[in-house]
Design a protein around this nucleic acid. Structure first.
Length: 411
RNA sequence: CGGGGUGUAGUUCAUCGGUAGAACGCUCGGUUUGGGACCGAGAAGUAGGAGGUCCAAUUCCUCUCACCCCGACCA
């Protein structure tokens, strides 16, 4: 992609209206632009990151045996009344058609999926069933804040499990925990598996919490990794010695990037989702719910991976593999194009800063702000057929041939 | 939803009763080219909206809308 053609530009300053680090950097870098409070537009760079994260999530979800669907955002009011949530779900957006029919604007999808699954599940042979989607969710937050971390419209992966019994459910629950661990690891963040309140549905839930100053949640955890609780339920205090000898428990602000919990038969009962067991008896389906905020994770990654110059994307979620910077010198006009074509041919996704009459300093500053993990410079100083390789998170540079570069990037 | 604050050029902000200004960005010309270069010329605004006070309102008052912050809320 030629940077000169890319929709969305970097900007130097950003309104003091946008005080959160993630929104500031994402806005300055040309990834997002705010539409209204708590709602963001994702520009090409931002969408690329969302898609990278989504694909990591898809891969791991598919590995657990789940299938992807896409459910409706406009939802049937009657089903929300059936579960009692039409009135009790505070953050529910309600919209009205011209015929005065009311709809829920989906904040979550039990009310859609359970009746749908009911049409297909009747026997123990139809279970287990695992369905997920990646979709825009709407929640009427009393107060949107922290940039893309708490927004009213956001991209979320939600998975719902349907099992014959608790034992099967427990096994799958653990499998999803593992999948989540893989997702966060690949996305470049450390997410601490944390016990939290179960709210309406069960005694407990599990949250995946990314430690950062700017988080809204707070957890008490063992530095050894064997214990973590959200302060909302924590009975122990910071500083208490870990039972397994890992030293004093720590307290930290954090961002909840995933939340999983048992639904038991809460929705199966509401919609009469049952199956006939091998023994001929009609039984309720045991459900679980597994959320993961894609856009929120993007924000969390930015909160964690940045420096005074801008974002530092982990490789797997970066909008491009490399940032090709051409410093104009007479006689080098064709060099960058040649390099770009070679890299593209090798399957490397390059953002090529081909702007004319833009100083080297400005191109470097933009590259740092955008935060693609590898920067390749082409200039007279570097020489034809060569590039200067620099990682975003390092000061060191290295000269190498374009062929070598392509090989290193694809290995 | 309570408390506080802010709406002026594409963006960030000044002006604070006498009808609008800078920087960045943008356009044109030229000089530059390894860390956000420079010179010159130029385009760009119903001052969020409505009402009121006043000879005169971006400025003061009222209402309204939007946005931000703190809190409450956050399956």
């Amino acid at each position: 992609m030629r940077y000169s053609k890319l929709f969305g530009k970097t900007i130097r300053g950003v309104s003091s209206d946008e005080p959160s680090k993630n929104a500031k950097l994402l806005t300055r870098g040309g990834f997002v632009r705010r539409e209204v409070a708590g709602v963001y537009n994702y520009l090409p760079l931002g969408l690329r990151v969302l898609n990278k994260i989504s694909n990591i999530v898809r891969e791991e979800m598919d590995k657990t045996g789940a299938q992807e669907v896409l459910l409706s955002a406009l939802q049937n009011k009657a089903n929300w009344e059936k579960t009692g949530r039409w009135d009790s779900f505070d953050a529910l957006y309600k919209v009205k058609s011209r015929q005065a029919t009311e709809y829920a604007l989906g904040p979550t999808h039990e009310e859609v999926l359970v009746p749908l699954v009911r049409q297909f599940v009747s026997s123990y042979r139809d279970l287990p069933l695992y369905l997920y989607q990646i979709q825009v969710k709407f929640r009427d937050e009393a107060r949107a804040k922290s940039g893309v971390l708490r927004s009213r419209e956001f991209l979320m992966k939600d998975l719902y499990s349907f099992n014959r019994d608790e034992q099967d459910f427990d096994k799958y629950y653990d499998r999803v925990i593992n999948a989540y661990k893989n997702i966060f690891k690949k996305s470049g963040v450390e997410a601490v598996l944390t016990e939290a309140s179960g709210g309406e549905f069960s005694k407990f839930s599990h949250e995946f919490q990314v430690l950062t100053e700017n988080g809204e949640d707070e957890i008490i955890y063992c530095p050894g990794g064997d214990f973590s609780q959200n302060v909302e339920i924590a009975r122990v205090k910071e500083g208490k010695q870990c039972d397994l000898g890992h030293g004093p428990l720590k307290k930290s602000k954090s961002i909840e990037v995933g939340n999983i919990f048992p639904l038991k038969t809460r929705f199966s009962d509401a919609f009469g989702l049952t199956y006939k067991g091998q023994d001929g008896k009609q039984k309720p389906v045991i459900m679980g719910c597994y959320g993961l905020g894609i856009s929120r994770l993007m924000g969390a990654i930015v909160e964690v991976h940045n420096d005074e110059k801008g974002i530092i994307w982990p490789k797997e979620v970066a909008p491009f593999d490399v940032h090709l910077v051409h410093i104009e010198d007479p006689g080098t006009e064709s060099w960058a194009k040649g390099a770009y074509e070679k890299l593209t041919y090798a399957g490397i996704d390059a953002l090529w800063d081909d702007r004319e009459n833009v100083s080297a300093g400005e191109k470097f500053a933009d590259a740092d702000l955008i935060g693609i993990p590898v920067r390749l410079v082409i200039s007279k100083k570097v020489g034809e057929g060569e590039v200067e390789w620099k990682n975003r998170d390092s000061k060191e540079t290295k000269m190498m041939s374009i062929d070598e570069t392509a090989k290193k990037l694809t290995s």
